[in-house]
């Protein structure tokens, strides 16, 4: 659906050239939700704008839905953009228009007849769950409702691709989840390809099928979300994975425990997919003569299954500990000894 090859964007600033996007190759399949994560300044904003040519690439090619975006004439580019919806961090609604008029805006641009506009707007209002709010102005809506208007507007012309530019970064956690649910819902219902950029791993975990990690204009790592969670290779990726699996309080709690006497060996187990439902701890206790106490655990749900981490402390004979670790490994569960007694 989307193919970027050797794409680069260089900005000329007072301090010299800045490579916002540095020779990126990327393929995004039809119907998938693809996430790009990175800190601010990593170039992800520029990357997503290269997809609909809001930024023209310095070099490289961009193909979206079978069209070579970088070669199109202005008029053809406008037509191509009507096939690509986009939503924004700050919603970017027209405050002078009502909800219904905002949603009708892209239809007006395309030149759809008034009666068709009305019909389509009603469908979209229903789709995003804003029944009865069509006559309100954006200033009368909450952030979540504004983003729903943004989504309805982006979907008005039945696009094949939806670009989300930090679409949930200005929303509170609960509203973020409801917007993410809506995105998954339309992805399934309409078979829409969604590309989103974010700095929150939570967003990637919750809705993305695949993810690319960006750092200084380059993609440092990419793959299936579950694989990335299971085996993050780059430091940057590990940091992002930690955002979800090891919230700060876990780290603090463990640090506190490790300082104590008699804590024994502390192991970190990582379960992926169906493993999370297996009675591994029970098996260990039955097989080996060791004491186990559970320190901290967490299971996170991704689009391709669950991902969990568990911190346990073991005490027993040195030999037994090694056996336990080997046993856990033989059960296809990742294990790491993070503290030895």
């Amino acid at each position: 659906m989307i193919t970027l090859s050797k794409i680069a964007k260089v900005f000329n600033t007072k301090d010299g050239e800045v490579k916002a996007v540095d020779n990126i190759d990327l393929t995004i399949d039809k119907g998938e939700i693809f996430g790009v994560i990175g800190y601010s300044g990593a170039g992800k904003s520029t990357l997503i704008r290269l997809l609909n040519m809001l930024e023209a690439p310095t070099s490289g090619t961009v193909e979206v839905a079978g069209k070579s975006m970088h070669t199109l004439s202005r008029q053809k580019l406008r037509a191509a953009r009507q096939e690509i919806g986009m939503i924004f961090q700050h919603f970017n609604l027209l405050w002078s228009r009502t909800v219904a008029e905002n949603i009708a805006f892209p239809l007006e641009i395309k030149g759809v007849s008034k009666t068709e506009q009305k019909e389509r707007v009603n469908e979209l209002i229903k789709l995003v769950g804003l029944e009865g709010r069509g006559g309100s102005y954006p200033s009368q809506l909450s952030g979540g409702q504004k983003q729903r208007v943004g989504i309805a507007r982006a979907l008005a012309n039945n696009p094949q691709v939806l670009l989300c530019d930090e679409a949930t970064s200005a929303l509170d956690p609960k509203t973020t989840d409801s917007i993410l649910d809506l995105l998954v819902d339309i992805n399934k219902k309409l078979g829409l390809t969604i590309v989103l950029i974010t700095h929150e791993m939570h967003v990637i975990r919750k809705i993305c099928h695949r993810v690319a990690v960006m750092e200084s204009g380059k993609i440092v790592e990419q793959g299936d979300v579950l694989d990335i969670f299971r085996r993050p290779k780059q430091e940057m990726t590990k940091e992002f994975v930690k955002q979800v699996t090891e919230p700060e309080e876990t780290e603090e709690a463990l640090k506190h425990l490790l300082d104590k006497e008699g804590i024994g060996h502390v192991l970190q187990l990582t379960f992926v997919g169906g493993d999370t439902q297996r009675p591994l701890i029970t098996d260990i206790v039955r097989k080996f003569d060791v004491n186990i106490s559970i320190l901290q655990g967490k299971i996170s749900q991704t689009q391709h299954g669950s991902y969990g981490s568990l911190f346990i402390s073991l005490s027993g004979e040195e030999k037994l500990i090694t056996d336990v670790v080997d046993y856990i490994k033989s059960q296809q569960v990742e294990v790491e000894v993070i503290h030895s007694a």
């Binding site: 609909n52 970017n92 007006e108």
Partner: peptide, 26 residues
């Protein structure tokens, strides 16, 4: 807001449409 103009461009609005439907009403 620059973002509103960017959003209109992303929707495929022509310059004339940006002037008449965005800049003046807003």
């Amino acid at each position: 807001d620059k973002g509103v103009i960017e959003a209109s461009k992303a929707m495929g609005a022509s310059n004339g449409q940006i002037i008449s439907k965005v800049l003046l009403p807003e």
